[in-house]
Amino acid sequence: MKKKHALCLFVGLAVLLVAFAGYGGGSKKEAEPGPKVEEMPVPMEIKMGEIKTRGPEGQVPLWYTEISLTEAEKEIIRKGKNGRKYVIAYDQLNVSEFDDAIGFAIDYMAEELNMEYIHTYNRFDASVQKDNVETILAKKPDIIAAVSVDPVVSGEAFRRAADMGVTLVFCSVKAPLEWGTKYNGGLVFYDLIGFGPLLAEELNKVLGGKGEVGIVFHQANFFITNQRDQGFEDALKKYPGLKIVDKRPTGNTIQDTEAIVSAMITKHPDVDGIYLPWQEHVMPAISALRAADREDIKIVTQDIGKTTALEMIRGDNIAMMTQCMAWQYGVTVTEMGCYAILGKEIPAECIIVPGLASTWKTIDQVWPRVFNTPLPKELQEVLDKKRAK
């Protein structure tokens, strides 16, 4: 029974990782590993204050700025060892704007550091991930970066890699290995609680400092969504004019979102704003609002995908979305892995990257800063037309 429970839990977590990876919906081809791009200098204020976010085991993380390579250290990596290049591998979880940006950043850094880059996909399948890791190990990698899909199947593969001396940099979800004794490397994720104040502030602004709020929260024991949801609810306390009138749970899928939101606004017809736990819930929620002729209700949520960004630009419901800086995430993953090659002490197991918040007015500034690509053409065209009105 315990094994069955664990399997169900991690299947659910895999579904979740699609959600908060900023997946825009629809089928997409696998991204070609590594478009040769330069980092886009997009000046935006990045807020990094006190860290309230915690790791999956209560770890106190440090900001990504604590991990960096000097030019001298980069030159050491470029020279390789014993006539061979250092090797970094990324077993990518999914095809999405978020996951692709991480992979592109690792590839970019690998080229900058004269490293060999190995890129694989596991498509949320633990067995595929196990095979991928075994294939990667045959190529004698120095660093493997990945989301651990399953604690048993994937965990065993990562345990073997760690025993072989490979540095493991986990992305958001780690294998059940003890840091410093069972594996060398760390866990990179992002400022989960830090998103809440951004969303609460914007909701207060668009509602004029007064209104009724409904919250749809994730009902599962998962440190990422739990902290994001709690961060928003705690941040609302700063605004006494905003009153939470309804809180409803949702599971790992979005099939019931439309019914949840419909029931919420039926019971509380004076609801002015709704918080959703991640952006995959947005379009079903908007279907419920349109059916009730409630385009006045404002939505705030976590993560940014192409579909929801387009809806935010052309519609009236979405007030704000947040997203981790995916490109910086990939850069940090690479630099953390290089610490082990250099024999540098990694200052903490958990390193976090900040995020940015976007409204329709700022999406063309936020998107490049997050994904290191211009706002997609179809979104830019709709945005230009809206601004011209």
Rank of each mutant, 00 (worst) to 15 (best):
I136M: 06
H218S: 13
D91G: 14
T250N: 04
G355H: 08
K140D: 14
F371R: 02
I260M: 00
D296P: 00
S96Y: 05
A291N: 10
M40Q: 11
A357I: 08
E50S: 13
I244Q: 06
G337D: 07
A292G: 02
N221S: 14
K81R: 14
A235G: 04
E32H: 09
V15C: 09
H268W: 04
V128W: 00
K243G: 10
E201P: 03
G355R: 06
T135A: 12
K79M: 06
A110Q: 03
L356R: 04
K306L: 09
G337T: 13
N94G: 03
A14W: 00
G55M: 03
R159L: 06
Q380I: 04
L342N: 10
D246T: 12
K243S: 13
D293K: 15
K182L: 07
Q323F: 07
I76E: 09
A145E: 02
A309M: 06
D107I: 08
A101H: 01
G330R: 00
F104V: 13
A326M: 09
A89Y: 07
V366K: 00
A138Y: 06
M44T: 15
N184K: 14
I286E: 00
H218Q: 11
M1W: 02
T334D: 05
I143V: 15
S68R: 11
K28E: 10
A319T: 07
Y339G: 12
S262V: 08
A6Y: 04
E258Y: 04
M325R: 15
V370I: 12
A157E: 01
M283G: 01
K247P: 03
A105V: 11
A263Y: 01
L310Q: 12
R387L: 13
Q92W: 04
M44G: 07
I51P: 02
G22I: 08
V382M: 01
L207H: 10
D270H: 12
G185V: 13
A21G: 15
D163M: 09
I286V: 14
K389E: 12
D234T: 13
R160A: 15
G25C: 03
R159P: 01
P354L: 09
Y329L: 08
V216I: 13
N94S: 10
P35F: 08
P176I: 11
N122L: 03
M1A: 14
V188R: 04
V216A: 10
W360R: 10
I51Q: 03
M312G: 10
V333W: 01
Q219L: 11
Y90M: 07
I265N: 00
I304T: 11
N184G: 09
P368M: 06
C8P: 00
E378G: 10
E38G: 14
Q279D: 08
I346E: 01
R387Q: 11
F217N: 10
H5M: 11
E280F: 09
G155W: 04
K140H: 13
R78Y: 05
A259G: 09
Y183P: 05
L375Q: 03
N184Y: 07
P240M: 04
N226A: 15
V37R: 14
L375F: 06
M312Q: 11
K377V: 15
F104T: 15
F124D: 02
S96W: 00
